[in-house]
Amino acid sequence: MPDGQVWWVFIPASLALIIVPGPDLLFLLSQGIQRGRAAGLATALGLASGNLVHTLGATLGVSIIFRTSAVAFATLKFAGVAYLLYLAWQVWKSAGKSLGDSPVVAVPGHAKLFRRGFLMNVLNPKVALFFLAFLPQFAKPEAGSIAIQMALLGGVFTLLVVVVFGMAGWFAGTLRPWLLRRGKRMRRVGAWFLVGVYCALAVRLALATR
């Protein structure tokens, strides 16, 4: 098990990486603003849970395939791109309607938002490579099983993501009442903004390299 000195370095380093604005955080904030606090929390939990998959992949050595195989990297990457564009298309279909206050608009439930966050994280090979590079730096042979140490480190990293992203999702959700009070036009603007977020994330992922 990692000793106390390792945790003193690992936790601040993890927090610094988590709070840096990135695609996951942008996606989370957009969901919270559009859907509310509970939606923000559900999305945060989904994004965090995806880290457990990448932790397992790094621990078992599976994630190394994305470093060594261009085909595997591209396959997962474009699966993620396709998923993001699918989400953009879903929002685009209802962009001309009033989000949040019309029964004809399909508003995703919390379970679906959790799955969206989870899949967005899992289908990003850059995250897999991050865990493969980051976790081993804090695992020491003299401290026992490297695999167990990496699993513990990945679990703690995920808990930190839950806390930080949960707070961010909750805060973003507090802005939704303000958006609703601004009327139908603002809700449409919010919907188109969300479409833009999905498309921007898809482009960013499509341009990602190993």
Rank of each mutant, 00 (worst) to 15 (best):
R181W: 00
W192K: 02
P108A: 15
V162G: 07
L15K: 03
A42W: 03
P177A: 08
A200V: 04
A42L: 11
G117P: 01
L52W: 02
Q34V: 09
G4I: 01
L135M: 00
W178P: 13
L113T: 03
S145V: 06
T209C: 13
L159V: 11
W89L: 07
A168T: 00
V20K: 14
D3I: 10
P12D: 05
F10N: 11
G32F: 03
V81Y: 01
S63A: 10
Y198R: 15
W89G: 06
S30V: 03
K112N: 06
R210M: 15
G46T: 07
L76C: 07
G190L: 05
A128W: 07
W89R: 04
F171S: 15
P103T: 00
A13H: 05
L87K: 10
A111S: 12
D3V: 11
P108K: 13
Q90T: 13
V197L: 10
N124E: 05
A58W: 02
V104P: 04
A200L: 11
T55H: 09
S98F: 03
F73M: 06
G173F: 03
L52G: 02
L45T: 11
R115E: 05
L119R: 10
L207H: 02
T75N: 11
L152H: 09
L85W: 05
A58M: 09
A70P: 09
G183I: 01
